[in-house]
Every structure is written in C-alpha cells, then in structure tokens.
C-alpha cells in the first residue's frame, strides 16, 4: 500500500480555488502533487457527469472547489454546485458507491494556506482508503 499514490482530479473555480492554488504555489507552500487541477469558470458549471467520468476513468477521488457562500462571482453558482454535489453524493450513497471520494470545499482566492492544507488532508485520506474500485473497471 505504501507505494500507492492517489490520483485526484480537482475542478477549481477560476475566481477562487484556482487562484488560491496559484497563491499556494507562488508563496512556496509545500503540499502533495496528487491533485490534477482543472480550472472551470464556476463550481456551478461542474456537471456531475464530469465527476463520475473522472471516477470511472482512473481518478481515486474528485474535489470541487468553489467560492465561499455569498462570494460567488456569478452570485449563486456555488450554491447550485452544493445542491448538485449533494444529489451526486446521495445517489452514490444509495447505490453503495464511495461518496466520500467526492469532496466539495469552499476556498477563497486569498486562502493559499487553506488550499495546501486541504490538498494534504485529502491526499492522506485517500491514501488511507486505497485505490478506488471504480477507477479501472474496463466493463463499466
């Protein structure tokens, strides 16, 4: 298990989490490189299909990062993202899939340290869980 490196796909809002990730980098914070970031214009644009596709095609976990409540660049995209992700996680739970491999986090553009902390937390958490059974099933 020790050589297992979790693959994590991150969908990060352009206006907050993606900038926080940049900030963490430019301020030379150390965090594990397991997250593959994908910049999106708003967490509200992340259709669950992309999350599921990532999980079925190799990702051990997915994180969606958006603006704190009230801070959405498009007023309420993050609130809609929260409902979408709640639906996705409820569906996964109902069907006995590992819903705890999907994370939604609010990380503002100024929160470089929070981004680094969550990257560390998530990597460790998923490392403990081990590889996802959904990740490599050819017959899915």
């Amino acid at each position: 298990m020790s050589d297992f490196e979790p693959k994590i796909v991150g969908f990060f809002c352009n206006w907050c989490t993606a900038t926080a990730a940049d900030l963490a980098g430019t301020t030379r914070m150390q965090y594990p490189p397991n997250i593959r970031p994908i910049r999106v214009m708003c967490s509200g644009t992340v259709d669950p299909v992309y999350v599921i596709r990532a999980l079925l095609n190799g990702a051990d976990a997915v994180i969606v990062g958006g603006c704190r409540p009230g801070d959405c660049h498009y007023v309420s995209g993050n609130m809609k993202a929260r409902r979408r992700m709640a639906i996705l996680k409820t569906i996964m739970k109902s069907l006995g899939l590992a819903e705890d491999r999907v994370w939604l986090r609010w990380i503002s553009a100024a929160e470089g340290p929070k981004f680094a902390k969550i990257a560390r937390e998530m990597t460790e958490e998923i490392r403990k869980k081990g590889p996802s059974e959904m990740a490599g099933a050819w017959e899915a």
């Binding site: 669950p48 596709r53 190799g58 569906i91």
Partner: peptide, 23 residues
C-alpha cells in the same frame, strides 16, 4: 489504460448521469 474497453462504452456513466440529471 484499462487493458480493455467495453463497447459501446459509458454504460454506468450513462445511468449514473441520467440519475443525476432527472432523479
């Protein structure tokens, strides 16, 4: 990447996505 690929593909993806969109 997976060693083999079921075709037509995206069977589970289709049903899970449909659930997300309409359930």
């Amino acid at each position: 990447r997976k060693g083999a690929l079921r075709l037509p593909d995206d069977t589970i993806l289709f049903h899970l996505t449909r659930l997300n969109h309409m359930v």
